[in-house]
Design a protein around this nucleic acid. Structure first.
Lengths: 196, 196
DNA sequence: CGGTTCCTTGAGGATGATCAACGAGGGTGG
DNA sequence: CCACCCTCGTTGATCATCCTCAAGGAACCG
């Protein structure tokens, strides 16, 4: 969990419901609020002129998202939409800044969080750019495995379209890659469900 | 400038020369030092098994680089190499952490810097993934224009290979894109030099 | 049971990668 | 000053790969 819920409420944060599909904020919009997920999940993505979408990331329980623009007076580089029905805490930018000023420990946590984000973005962009479809998908699976030290194969909770949007590939390519990967045991496909 | 030079030296930082091509740190290496460029420039990149390189970014005078892993106890996701002859300040990780603890203002600056990095990484990955070669190159040119509010076309100080490594394209593709772009005035090419 | 949403397959086409060869410029040393 | 080398730029031909389009099937849900 990013910031303590009590602390947030003390500062006047409110919890808001976002049904699946509802937009939280929009690309190029000015950033005025801090968002932290109580439950549910959201997806951040870009759309290009042809309507093709590129997923920047998924965020879920306890995570905050869309913070960077708050600190640098920039607009959002991507759009955020509820991926499931979600309950999200909302706090004004000014109050967030004050919280950080008064709580060095929280500020430190934020700095660490931002560093983690950069680190994983660096890794994912390198994985995506140079590699073949199978590599990109593999990288996605590894990065999004819930229980990283679990050796059992787990159900991959993303549709092929979602994986395509994340890896910059097309659905059909993802599908064909998966059937190949299942042949060499890299993943299992049981009843159209992917396990990794 | 990121951290005041006097402050750095007070804490025992040393300046070190890196001739062009010398490695500063290497992918997967543990992060133990803070680096800040006095003069020169460095390039951060990844290589894949076939030797193809992907440039994560360039850093120059006054900028620091390779900080994120310091805060999250991770290895470097990329390799850093001097792109020109450079003079770089080096300070141990522990001391940097102490500087930040004792100087909330510096810590705040760091947080802002990291936010900027995420922001530009988000933008560049969206630009790179979905788009055609001309778009990718355009995005590179825009992001790397020195004098952003200059309407005069300026010399682009990168070779076509460097732009290829940054955009995930091949040299030949970059060349062909440039000749196309010069036909519709998006760039000028004079004497093999690109102006944008 | 009807309607979504998601998955699957095939055929065909476009595009960027690859390979190979050559040209141009700049710097260095004889 | 010239010859050489090295890096960078350029071009054309060919190939592999992924995208596109189109159609149909499977699973799931109310």
């Amino acid at each position: 969990m990013q910031i303590d819920l009590d602390l947030l409420f003390t500062w006047g944060a409110i919890a808001k419901e976002y049904p699946k599909g509802k937009m939280v904020f929009c690309e190029d919009e000015k950033a005025n609020f801090y968002f932290q997920i109580i439950e549910g999940s959201i997806r951040m993505f870009n759309s290009n002129e042809e309507g093709k979408e590129f997923t920047q990331g998924y965020f879920t329980n306890g995570q905050s998202f869309g913070e960077p623009p708050l600190f640098i007076d920039e607009t959002y580089p991507s759009t955020a939409v509820a991926f499931q029905d979600s309950k999200i805490i909302k706090l004004s930018k000014d109050k967030l800044i004050k919280i950080l000023e008064e709580n060095p420990v929280v500020q430190k946590k934020f700095l660490n969080l931002m560093c983690q984000r950069i680190h994983s973005k660096a890794i994912s962009s390198k994985d995506i750019i140079n590699q073949k479809p199978e590599f990109r998908i593999m990288a996605f699976l590894i990065a999004h495995k819930k229980n990283k030290n679990c050796y059992e194969k787990e159900l991959v909770p993303y549709t092929r379209q979602e994986i395509a949007n994340f890896t910059g590939l097309r659905v059909e390519t993802v599908i064909r890659a998966f059937t190949k990967m299942s042949k060499c045991q890299k993943v299992d496909i049981i009843n159209h469900k992917v396990f990794y």
